[in-house]
């Protein structure tokens, strides 16, 4: 699946929710279910520190695709991270560099990316692009 078809799939999934709390319930479930990161990567080296919550992000290149794993100490943030990983993980650096993230806006979670939320998500998205650039440079 392309990155965009995964984004569209998530938008479709969220279209059934009429209420905010339902969205949050879903994100909480996602956050609970997903074992997102190996404990050995849950250290300061991989930490993106927000004012509100912490995010850990790890990336490795496997057979030309980047595999992202991540975690957060706050569960709603973790749920959103789960979605972001689902979108970007297992794609080539070039695909990740070329694709714009739009699903967060479309499912009404853009406020979570505002700098004032300071939950580490915005920094995490920047970091994902940085990893893609770095791996691409390495491949060349």
């Amino acid at each position: 699946m392309t990155i965009n078809s995964i984004q569209n799939e998530i938008i479709e999934e969220f279209s059934v929710f009429s209420e905010w709390l339902e969205k949050y319930e879903y994100l909480i479930e996602l956050g609970k279910d997903l074992p997102l990161i190996d404990d050995k990567f849950k250290k300061d080296e991989y930490l993106i520190k927000g004012c509100q919550s912490k995010v850990w992000l790890h990336a490795e290149l496997i057979d030309g695709n980047i595999k992202f794993t991540a975690d957060s100490d706050a569960i709603i943030t973790k749920g959103i991270i789960g979605l972001v990983i689902r979108v970007f993980s297992d794609h080539t650096p070039q695909e990740i560099i070329d694709t714009d993230l739009y699903f967060i806006d479309k499912i009404g979670l853009q406020e979570h990316l505002s700098p004032t939320r300071s939950n580490g998500l915005l920094a995490m998205l920047k970091q994902i692009k940085m990893y893609a650039l770095a791996f691409q440079a390495k491949q060349k």
Partner: peptide, 22 residues
């Protein structure tokens, strides 16, 4: 073990403004 920011986000949707964080 709940994170304060999760509580803050949910009750915001219920109309209640509190502060979370350090």
């Amino acid at each position: 073990n709940t994170h304060p920011s999760d509580i803050g986000l949910i009750i915001d949707k219920l109309g209640v403004a509190i502060r979370t964080g350090h």
